[in-house]
Each structure stands twice: as C-alpha cells, then as structure tokens.
Write a protein that binds this DNA or RNA. Structure first.
Lengths: 337, 337
DNA sequence: GGTTTGAAATGAAACCTTTCAGTTCCGTTG
DNA sequence: CAACGGAACTGAAAGGTTTCATTTCAAACC
C-alpha cells in the first residue's frame, strides 16, 4: 500500500505482459476489450499511479512548461499565467510558475532548474537585456518564447507595443494641458520600463515640449511600496519643478503613489494627475479610479503558449514569429475630474 | 550539442568511471581535487546538465512540492505562495503553484498530477469538505498539510481562526451602531466562508440581535466581479430590509462591492459600511480605504512549509500538529467616516 | 488440411542517475 | 619485506516506463 505498484505488478496481477499494460495506458484501442478491463481492474486494485519521472526519462523531455515572470504579486502576471495555463492544459501540459522577482540570480536559478527538468518549453519575461543564457537553452533544443517583450527575428516573442503605450499615456496628459510631467518606473534596465519611457519621450517631443519637462523618477521596483515612497519624493520637489501629472510604468506604482498622495490631502487629479499601466482589475476600484493603459493580458498568455507549441512541433525549420499587440488607453477619474 | 550529454559521456571525457562523476556531483569532498577538476572541466566542455527525471526515478520521490490554492488571482494566495516558496527554497525544494479555481474537478486533476510526479509533499486549501482523495494521498506516504483550514488531530494544518475573524468584523460594525448587517460570500461550501459566517453569527448573538438581522447574500465566487453584482442585489432590496453595513468574506468581494456602490453615488460608509477580509495590499489603496481583517499571509505560508518538512523528516511516528494564527482587525475609512 | 493474414500480446532494450560493495593503489607500520 | 589500512575509484544493479521487433493464435481462405 505504502510502496506504490509499478506496471510490472499490474501486469502480474492481470496476467499479461508489461507491454500490454503500457498499451492499455497509452493506446487502449490496440488492446482487446476483455484484456483492457482486466488490466484496468488490476490498476484499480493495486492503486497503481504512473510514475511521471520514469515516463520523462524514457521520453527525454517533460510535459511541463516553465513560465518565468518578474513578479507573481502583480496581477498582470497572474492574469497572463491564467492565459498560459488554459492553453497549456488543452495540450496536456502543465505550467510551473517561477517568480524571478526582478532578480538575475533567481532567474538563472530557475532557468537551470527548468533545464534539469528537461522542460518542454520556456516562457520568460527576462530580467535583463542579456540573452546569453536563454540562447544557450534554445540551442539545446528547448523552445523559448519571450513574453511581454519584443525581439529580433532570431526568436519567438509576444509583446504589447510598450512604446505606443507610453506615448498614449503621455499624449493624453499633454492633451489635458499638463506641461511638466513625471515618469515613475524602474529599474530602467527592465525593457518594458525603458520602452514606456521612450514612448513618453516621443509624446513630449511630438508636442514640442522640452526634454527636461519630463521628470524621470527611477524606482527600485515596480510595486506598491515603491509607488508610495515616490509620493514623498514628489512632494519634496520645489513647486516650480514639481510635475502636475505623472505616468507610472505600472498600476502597482500608480496605486501606491495614489494612496500616498491622497494621504497627504492632495487631490487627484487636481494637484496631481496619475496614469497607470496594465489596467489590472484593482485599477478601476482604486481610491480614484485609475486611468491606465490596458494590455490584453490573457490573450498575451494564450498567444505565447500557442507560439511555444508551434515552435515545439515544427522541430527543425521553425520560422520564429513576433506577435505584437496594441495597447489601449482607458480614461478614468485619476486624470479627468 | 543538441543531444545532451550524460554522466557516461562526462566520465569518458574525463577518463574516470561514471561513479566518480556522480561523486563529484554529490560528494565532491570524496574525490581527489585533481580528478574533481578534470571532471568539472569535462562537464563544462560537454555542457552537461543533470537529468532531474533520472534522479527522481532513482530517489523515488521528487524535490517538488505542490501548492494547491483556490485562486491565484487573489493576492492573499500569492502572498501565501511567497512564504511557502522562500521556506521551500532554503531546503532545495521547488514549488508548483496549482490553481484549483474553486473547482472540484481541477483540484482532483492537480492532485493526481502531483501524485504522478511523486511530489515531495502537498500543501492544499481544499475546495470542499471531503478529504477522501487527500486521505488516500497521505496513505501513500506523501505528506500533506492543510492550509488556511483547521483540521482534526489526524492531519497537519495551518490556519487563521476564521470564526474569530468574522466575529471581530461584525462586532466592530455593531459597535458602530449598525443593526441590520449583510454577509457577502460564497460558495458556503468553502470552509473559510462558512466559518467567517459562523463568527458573524456569534457576534450578532452576543449583541442580542435577532438571527434575521444578519442578511446572508451568497455569491458564486470570491472575486471582484461577484462583489460588483452584489451591489445591484443590495440596491434592489426594500429599504427596511436593506443592511446598513456589510461584511464581505474577502477583500476582492469588498472591493467589487465598494466600486459598484460608489458608482451608484452612494456613500461608503454613510449609506453602506463595508468590511473586507485578508487585508490585501490593495485594500488600503481602495476608493475608500477598506476596513479589513488581517491575516499573517506570509507567515501562514512559512508555517505550512515548516510543518510539511517536519512531517517529511520524521517519517514514521509523526505527531500531526495544528497551527492556528489569530486574525487582527484593521480599521479604515470604509467603516468609520 | 495446410497456408496465409492480421490482430493481440510479448519482452528485451533503452533512457540516466545514484548507490554501494568491491577493487586498486600507495604509503605506513611492524 | 610482508601485511595492513585507508583513500580513491570502479562498475554493476536498480528504479519504472515506453517502444518496437517478434511471437502467438485463431480465423479465413484455397
């Protein structure tokens, strides 16, 4: 009971060879119904459970795909994960959610773990720019799809046009008459952050505003706490330098900043207009409902998984594809009173 | 290059036996430094990566623990997961996060998956009451710890006293003068929900309020959307039956309800006071900062993982333990103006 | 009756690691 | 110089599954 039964035990009990048991498990139609039933009964009686490790060893690769994200605490990524998981499930694959937490070491750690597990494939939002480790993995034959991050032709990727997103956000603020605008986000080494910033710059330039009219406030992380501390930083600025509107690189920052600003008894958007990014579910329920740049999170996950499956199936001459979604600005009270 | 090297290849290249390679990998101190270096170099040159499947097969169990939660979209569970993961990582274990999504079938599916993977252990917040499947797993020798759920002496569990939490929440509302109080949550088959409701009833009784002064509104799920639709339901009630305050079984519901209520231009807490549960990070940043019952989420995860390790180490005569944390009421503007 | 055919069942080999009893080798000791 | 001891290394076995070339068997055919 405690020691689990193997196919051999099942075979013995059913009075067949172990090959037949395997056939019952994997190609039931090739086994005579009577035999099949007998084997099934033996499986029941012995409480036989397939040993996935042995299957994997034989197959050479596992049926698990790794999804490496920057922050599981960010609803953006959990929504993404849902999309991935649903699509993966349809192909009988399971998903391991790995939280790199913006940390290079953790990312490396998870990547080597996934390699040891001979992962079926990897979906990753990389921490840094360097793709050496990822290239190495791809060279071993494991399909890799970059998520929420564009790429060159050398690899598959699924992304939302972050530059356009940044542009939309800041153009919106400019159209409301703001002239001094803050950008809150970081670390700037994260690609999405720098792209959104680049988009913001494009909007500034298009409106003929000076470069230094965009005040960049770099944060250590993209979380609520960092957003809160940004509030102090902004409040401490001399009035003539202080921005009248802020574009945050994601909603967590925006919510943190919003919370802090409200606690200082400043009005949003009166004293400070705020735009977020991602349009997570909590953005609409915020102290002041948040204007945000919406990304198709679940579809992003689905598309990523589909690309991965595609890459896994046409093993050799695979043509890498880059899927790019377009973001959408959702206007709420945090910018328009 | 594409085909990965095995210990045998490494051994051949380094001119040693495969046993020595294994020793370099697992007990480096038993190998002469010179040999060790030679093997290491061979590993480097061949790009050898350990095959986890083969290790598992040999070892009989994997180094993965399964964490089965009701809803990954709920920050309560992702915070919990963080606690679990940190503690697991220290012992070289990895965590697979499984989202049962309140669904019996999905739960069953994940449990059998974890069994096939010969999981090192399982942490689970079960969907229903029935523990037949879980008992069966425990009988195979896999340690199981119930999370966010008390239990009898027959199994390990980590929980927060939900009854006390419900009592705290409703006692608070009563102390503010409310006489007709709503309870929002569901499905009631979820243990945490029914316990919190039970606590609410205790508070009502203690205050000498009639049983039917507690209006129970059962929701299909514990998410923001359900919270929003509850708003309509409450608005549609005749004024004399309509509660003046509501206790929601979790913060997602509370945030949804809050959002809907605000959109109806009703004031919170003026027209409707709201208490949530979990005190997730977004509760404080809500439209009206949310009064909520705080649970030690991260510690909960840590404690669960520690219990699991404990159960895994004293294989035989393990004494099951029940760890119960006490919740804490955090009062904010959603109840006090 | 003998031969052919095809479905059904068989069982050895392969997948890769870890373990452990056994061997080798070299320096020490009596 | 023989015997011993211990460190270093070896290599076979085990672990459970899947695959596939082979074998078996009964029915169909000539």
């Amino acid at each position: 009971m405690s020691e689990s039964a193997s196919v051999v035990d099942v075979a013995a009990r059913a009075g067949v060879s172990l090959g037949t048991v395997s056939n019952v498990l994997n190609r039931p139609d090739r086994v005579a119904p009577a035999t099949r039933d007998r084997v099934m009964r033996a499986i029941q009686e012995l409480g036989f459970v397939r040993n996935e490790a042995a299957r994997q060893l034989r197959a050479g690769r596992s049926r698990t795909i790794g999804l490496v994200v920057l922050d599981v605490g960010n609803p953006f990524f959990t929504d993404l994960a849902r999309g991935v998981e649903t699509t993966a499930g349809k192909s009988g694959l399971s998903v391991v959610l790995c939280n790199s937490n913006d940390d290079d070491d953790r990312e490396r750690h998870y990547l080597s773990l996934l390699q040891e597990q001979r992962a079926f494939g990897i979906l990753i939002t990389p921490v840094g720019k360097e793709t050496a480790a990822i290239d190495a993995i791809r060279r071993t034959g494991t399909p890799v799809v970059l998520v929420d991050r564009g790429s060159n032709r050398r690899q598959c990727s699924v992304s939302v046009n972050d530059r356009v997103g940044g542009e939309l956000a800041v153009a919106h603020l400019i159209s409301l008459g703001h002239k001094r605008i803050g950008f809150v986000g970081g670390p700037l080494t994260i690609n999405q952050v720098s792209e959104r910033l680049a988009g913001a710059r494009v909007a500034m330039e298009a409106a003929g505003l000076a470069e230094d009219a965009l005040v960049v406030i770099e944060t250590p992380r993209l979380d609520v706490a960092s957003g809160r501390s940004t509030g102090a930083e902004i409040a401490a600025m001399p009035a003539r330098r202080r921005p009248t509107a802020v574009f945050c690189a994601n909603d967590l920052l925006a919510l943190g900043l919003l919370q802090d600003t409200t606690q200082r008894h400043k009005s949003v958007p009166g004293d400070l207009a705020i735009v977020g990014y991602d349009d997570i579910e909590f953005a609409a329920a915020a102290a002041v409902p948040l204007t945000s740049v919406r990304q198709p999170r679940v579809q992003l996950g689905q598309a990523a998984m589909e690309l991965l499956l595609e890459e896994a199936s046409d093993a050799d001459g695979h043509q890498h594809r880059q899927v790019v979604f377009e973001p959408e600005l959702v206007i709420r009270e945090s910018t328009t009173s």
